[in-house]
Design a binder for these strands. Sequence first.
DNA 1: TCAAAAGTGTTCGTAGTACACCCATGT
DNA 2: ACATGGGTGTACTACGAACACTTTTGA
Lengths: 252, 252
Amino acid sequence: MPAAGSEPPIADGTTLRVEVLSVVFQIRVPQVRVAPPTAPDSGYGSDADGPSLCVLLTRTADGVWTLPGGGVGAEETLSASARRLVADSLDVREIAHLEQLSVFSDPHRVPIVRTIASTYMGLVPSDAAATPPEAAGWFAVDSLPPLAFDHTEIVDAARHRLAAKLSYTNIAFALAPARFPMSALSEIYCAALGYPVDTTNLLRILSRRAVVVATGTVGKTGRSGGRPPALYAFAEKELRVTDEFATLRPPM
Amino acid sequence: MPAAGSEPPIADGTTLRVEVLSVVFQIRVPQVRVAPPTAPDSGYGSDADGPSLCVLLTRTADGVWTLPGGGVGAEETLSASARRLVADSLDVREIAHLEQLSVFSDPHRVPIVRTIASTYMGLVPSDAAATPPEAAGWFAVDSLPPLAFDHTEIVDAARHRLAAKLSYTNIAFALAPARFPMSALSEIYCAALGYPVDTTNLLRILSRRAVVVATGTVGKTGRSGGRPPALYAFAEKELRVTDEFATLRPPM
DNA sequence: TCAAAAGTGTTCGTAGTACACCCATGT
DNA sequence: ACATGGGTGTACTACGAACACTTTTGA
């Protein structure tokens, strides 16, 4: 049965490189242009105006944009490596949630040296003042520059993971500020999902699941009047699955 | 901002080993004991009798049970490595579905040599005659022997992944025979989930989603009489997400 | 004719969507 | 007052769970 076949010999460490790559997301409001909005179609986020989902990228010496990453530390787990490597571009404490994505292992995904990439998704709250240094920057996912190797594919995987988890976990805690009006949370969901979300129903769903709770405080009313909004907060600051089984639930 | 800190230097390939470990599942009926059922409580599968979820294990020279796995081939993707390595214990063609689980990277999960494990879950249809050779065997997940290192934890991760995906994908195609009565499929779900599933509702759910279709044929009636069952089949033999968003669905 | 297993149909609860309507504030 | 945004309430739909009832076979 073993079937085996004529497979190449097993590579022991010497020719195999392991890198960690992170897709760090933040919901960011488009930078305020100094000039008044004369340009009718300045390609902002997903829809119209409003905040948009952005990725942290770094630029190599050759001027190529890449995901932040690098090699694994000798005494680190991979997630610790990811945190350390992102720290070159960002204060690590700003990463509110970090989770593994899949491993990219195509033998020729990177030329010359065989390199396996273990990838991570990191989330930064939208109120974190995460201004990256020199050779790094935030880019809206809908208008990314060309990326090195398979990094665009990795960003796509992260986007899909985020969108999926928004619907059955409390993962948005890592994207939202400490306290927020529901309209702001709705915009966050909209930016991450790519389609509008009804604010009023969002509150009901997240309340029923005890994901968000009212803080009792109210925010300032907007620039053009309107009722001041109640401020909410996430009940927990750790990932929790809130709707594990869409169907075939365990009895009781 | 870089924060950096006093992290150890980056390990380049030389001291870092990458292994691939696979959790291969099959739903198996308990081996028929020659003696009549005099023992009242012979610990079979999850509940009472019926088939149970089993894992493929291999035994090392030291007599320790481990997950099948090994090093990565120079010109292979990791999934190809997983398939090749499982082939030592099983015909690879029997693996109907293989997918990545997470990477286990604790620096001391394996003594002496720093070893990172990229893990996979493989599924074998219950009608595949998958009799493993000498130093390998199938074990019910509820009564596993002690496993090497963190392999028990890896099996648990695979179990949870399988249970979750049963509820929102067609992943059971890789556990079921080519054609089956719904009662058999119900037993498969029960074994994998750990709790009973209503056969009649299962048909309705999977029919609505066009996951299973009637073949028009009927099977033989059981040993103790009863109406002969209609035989069904999975419409597709590739993983498909059938219920992507439990909530926050895209409009329309 | 009876037991066993398969299949059909009905009821019920509940989550999520859509949308109308009321409330509070600044100008 | 009135525009603007926030909040509440109410139908409507749909899916899944539970379970009773009918059908088809073998003994």
